[in-house]
Amino acid sequence: MGYLYAQSGNVGIGTSVPGSKLTVDGSFAAAYGNITANTYNIGENDFYVSWAGTADGTATLPDSTTGVERKGRTYYIKNTSQMYTLTIDANGTELIDNVQNVSILPGESALLVKTDNNTSTGVTYELVMLSKADTSYICAVSSSTAETHNQGTTYKANFTNVDFSTNGGADFNLTTDTWTCPKSGYYKIEFMESGYHTATNVSAHRLMSILKNGVAQSQQYYTMVLLNISASQRAGAYDSVVLNLKQGDTITGSLVMCNGCGTPTMTSFVRRMVFTRL
C-alpha cells in the first residue's frame, strides 16, 4: 500500500522524507500511446508515443500559444515502423532548437522538452536526445571478368562476387545484378569501373550511372584515350551518391559508351559497387 507525505513543500510517495519537490520511492508510469495514423497531433496527455505508420508521416507538437503551461514537459517519440520516416514538427513557425522539424528513421527515437518560450516563433522545444538506429551495414560486390561492350548500347553493370556483406550477401542478387535495400535509411552508394579499347589514336567516352528503381540518381563520365602505343592502357572513374532509401528500393549500375566515338567496342575490365548505411 502506498502513502503520500508532504514535508517542507516537498511531496513524497512511499517516503516520509521527500528530498525533492516530488520524490517517488518506487516505480513510475506515464501514458503510452501506440499510434498508426500517418498524421498525428501530439496531445496534452501524451508522454511516450510509439509510431507505426503505413507511409511517411508527421507528428506535430502542441501549439505553444494555446492551452496550459507546458514548460519542462517531455515527450518520448519512437519510430517503430519498418520502412517509413516520421517527421516531428514543432508546429507552424516554432522551432526545435534551430530547425522547424526533426526526422527519425525506422528504429530511431527522440526525446524533446518544452522550453519557457510560449510564442509562435523561436525555440519552443529542445531536442534532448536522438537515438540513432543501428548503422552497421555494408555490402561490397565486384567483378574482374572482362566484357566487350558495343558503343551506344546500355549495359547493366555485371558483378560476379559478393566480396563482403554484414547481412550475409542476401541483399545482392548476382543473377540480376541488383541490390535491394534491406532497411529504410540513408545509404552511400559507390560505383567504380575501369576499361580500355584497342583502337589507336582514338578517344572514347564512357557514361556510368547509379540507378534507383530504374531511374538515374548520379552519373559520371570518363575518357579512354589510346595513342599509337601499347593497348594495355586503362582508364576508369568513380561515382558516389547518398540516398534516402526505403526498404525494398533497388539499386543497379548502368554503363554505356558514346555513339560514334571512332571505335566500335571497348572492354569493361573491373567493376565494383559498395553500399554503406550511414
Rank of each mutant, 00 (worst) to 15 (best):
L4A: 15
Y5Q: 14
A6P: 00
Q7C: 04
S8A: 06
N10H: 15
I13N: 06
S20K: 10
T23C: 03
T23I: 09
G26K: 15
A31L: 13
A37Q: 09
N38V: 03
T39D: 08
T39R: 13
T39G: 14
N41A: 13
F47Q: 15
S50P: 01
T54M: 06
T54H: 14
D56M: 03
G57W: 00
A59Q: 05
T60R: 15
P62R: 11
P62V: 15
D63R: 14
S64G: 00
S64E: 05
K71D: 05
G72C: 13
T74L: 12
Y76W: 14
Q82I: 02
Y84I: 01
L86P: 04
T87I: 05
G92L: 07
G92K: 01
V99N: 13
Q100E: 15
V102R: 06
S103K: 13
L105S: 04
S109F: 04
L112M: 10
K114M: 06
K114E: 10
D116E: 12
N118K: 10
S120E: 11
V123T: 15
V123M: 09
V128D: 09
V128R: 08
C139T: 12
A140M: 05
V141H: 02
V141C: 08
S143M: 05
H149Y: 06
Y155K: 07
F159N: 06
T160W: 03
G168Q: 05
D171S: 03
N173Q: 03
T176K: 01
C181A: 13
S184H: 01
S184E: 00
F191S: 04
E193G: 06
G195Q: 07
Y196W: 06
Y196A: 13
H197N: 08
H197Y: 07
A199W: 10
A199L: 10
T200A: 14
T200V: 11
T200P: 05
V202M: 12
V202N: 10
S203N: 15
H205E: 07
I210Q: 01
L211I: 01
L211M: 10
G214N: 11
A216Q: 08
Q220S: 15
Y221M: 05
T223A: 06
M224H: 11
L227W: 07
I229G: 04
S232F: 12
R234G: 00
A235K: 01
A235M: 09
A235T: 15
G236I: 05
A237M: 10
D239T: 06
V241T: 08
V242R: 08
V242N: 12
D249V: 02
D249I: 01
T252P: 02
T252L: 01
G253D: 01
S254F: 02
S254G: 14
L255N: 11
N259I: 04
G262Q: 11
G262C: 07
P264R: 00
S268D: 14
S268N: 04
F269P: 00
R271I: 06
T276H: 04
T276Y: 02
L278W: 10
